[in-house]
Computed example of a mutant assay.
Amino acid sequence: MKFIHTSDWHIGRQLHNQSLLDDQCFVLNQIIELATEHNVDAVVVAGDIYDRSVPPANAVALLDDVVNRLVNELKIPLIMIAGNHDGHERLGFASRQMNDSGLHIVGPLTQEVRAIELKGKQGSAMFYGLPYADPATVRQVFDCEASTHEEAMAKLLEQVELHDSKGLPKVVVSHCFLDGGSESESERPLSIGGADKISPKLFTPFNYTALGHLHGPQYKGAEHVRYSGSLLKYSFSEQHQNKSVTLVELDCDGKATFELLPLKAVRDVRIIEGELAQLLEQGKTDLNREDYLMVRLSDKTAILDAMGKLRSVYPNVLHLERTGLMSDKSKVELSRDHIKKGELDMFTDFFAQVSGEPMTEAQQQAMITAIDELHKAERTS
């Protein structure tokens, strides 16, 4: 049995108000190509299919196209579970009617954990979809005591352990936060105060656990308890992550082996730093100038329309930080001469940017006189 484990598609996501739908379409096409190239028996998506519980129409249309190509055209079964970003009921609409087509969607949590038997070309496996469920939901559905996410997950996994898989390997698909997992800024916290953390040991008895929620590829507790990571870099804190999907193969004994299949984005998400003049010059030869960028300017003087200047070279600058000015503030000596010098420097820069030429000595002296007169007026008022 061979399948692709992926998660956290977040279709419809924006990065600093920039739509990522085209970028997502590009990477989803790669997943379809990888599924074909590796002749997989299934594709598993471990939650956060959409970025919002009520997704925009163009996000729904993109998912519909992906599902059609995988399930109808390529005849590859697809398993999807709801994550904390998804609207469980909306995602799970008509899921019972779709089972026979090869599309298996696990939306709202039900009293009976759903077992999905998939037959592969060289073996079969039993998949158990556990949608994201907080302790309150588990208490309501199962009429039990569960005050933490770990207690809630333990209750769900009891059914998986007790279920007769007919000797087939057991694959758990879940969306949760394992204790010790590496987070990034783009993940929505599941709770406050650490109550969302779950011990990886709960999942080690199974042949493979396909996890979603954390955006960096990683494993916890054991190598077969894995996060595939997100499709794309959804925050600048993820700039050093290498995005991929996980190719999983279960042998005749149910032992899992894995391979990370890299994903290539249309545009990278990265941070660049330096002075404005330096960045504008290097941008002329930067082959990746179309990337989504956060820029940290180290200039310590005022700059007129810094964002406009940057976007003339780097069209997809999404965020600008003036680190030079911020660091300078902590070092300013509040002497009158220093304040005067700072005001003069700022006006000199402003004058040069507006007029296109530097101030003459006479103009600088006139400005110094004006600043002195302003300070005298302040002292006497």
Rank of each mutant, 00 (worst) to 15 (best):
L280H: 06
D299F: 08
Y132M: 01
A152M: 05
T285D: 13
Q97R: 05
L280F: 11
Q278G: 11
L156S: 07
V43R: 10
L178S: 04
A256V: 01
L91D: 02
T110P: 08
S165P: 04
R267K: 15
L287I: 15
K166V: 02
C144F: 09
E373A: 12
L178F: 00
T285G: 05
I81Q: 00
Y314H: 13
N17S: 14
G229Y: 01
V54G: 04
H175L: 00
E89H: 06
Y227P: 01
D253E: 09
E378H: 14
E273L: 09
Q365N: 09
Q365W: 07
H213P: 05
N68W: 13
H213C: 03
Q353T: 04
L168V: 10
I192Q: 06
Q364S: 11
R90Y: 05
L118F: 07
L320C: 06
S199L: 06
R311S: 03
A82M: 04
S230A: 15
L247N: 06
I116H: 12
H38G: 08
E249K: 07
R13G: 02
Y128S: 04
L190C: 03
I192V: 10
F26E: 15
M326H: 15
P217A: 06
D345V: 14
D337C: 06
S335K: 13
V66Y: 05
K75L: 12
V60I: 14
H215W: 04
P358W: 09
N207W: 03
V113F: 12
I79T: 01
V106K: 02
G274S: 10
P56N: 03
D134N: 12
V160W: 03
Y314P: 08
T285M: 09
R296T: 13
E357D: 03
Y227I: 01
Q14V: 08
L156R: 06
M359W: 09
W9F: 00
L310T: 05
G308H: 06
L344D: 11
Y50P: 00
R52D: 05
R267N: 14
E290I: 13
I31H: 01
G324T: 04
L91S: 01
D48R: 00
V171D: 10
M80L: 10
H16M: 11
F177G: 07
N84P: 00
S186T: 00
D196L: 05
I272A: 02
G167N: 07
L280E: 08
G167E: 05
K341N: 13
L78F: 15
E223I: 09
E290D: 15
R13Y: 13
R270V: 08
T6K: 02
S230G: 01
N58P: 07
N316P: 02
T204Q: 14
S147A: 15
L310W: 09
P200K: 08
R188V: 00
G92Q: 02
S165I: 04
H85F: 02
D64N: 10
L334Y: 14
T148R: 08
G123A: 04
H5Y: 03
M294Q: 15
L130T: 01
K341M: 12
Q364E: 13
L293V: 04
I272T: 08
G212N: 00
L118K: 15
Q24A: 04
Q24M: 10
H319F: 12
V141F: 07
V43S: 03
T360L: 07
K197D: 02
D337M: 08
H149S: 09
L334R: 12
Q365G: 01
Y314K: 09
D251W: 02
Y128T: 01
E223M: 12
E361F: 13
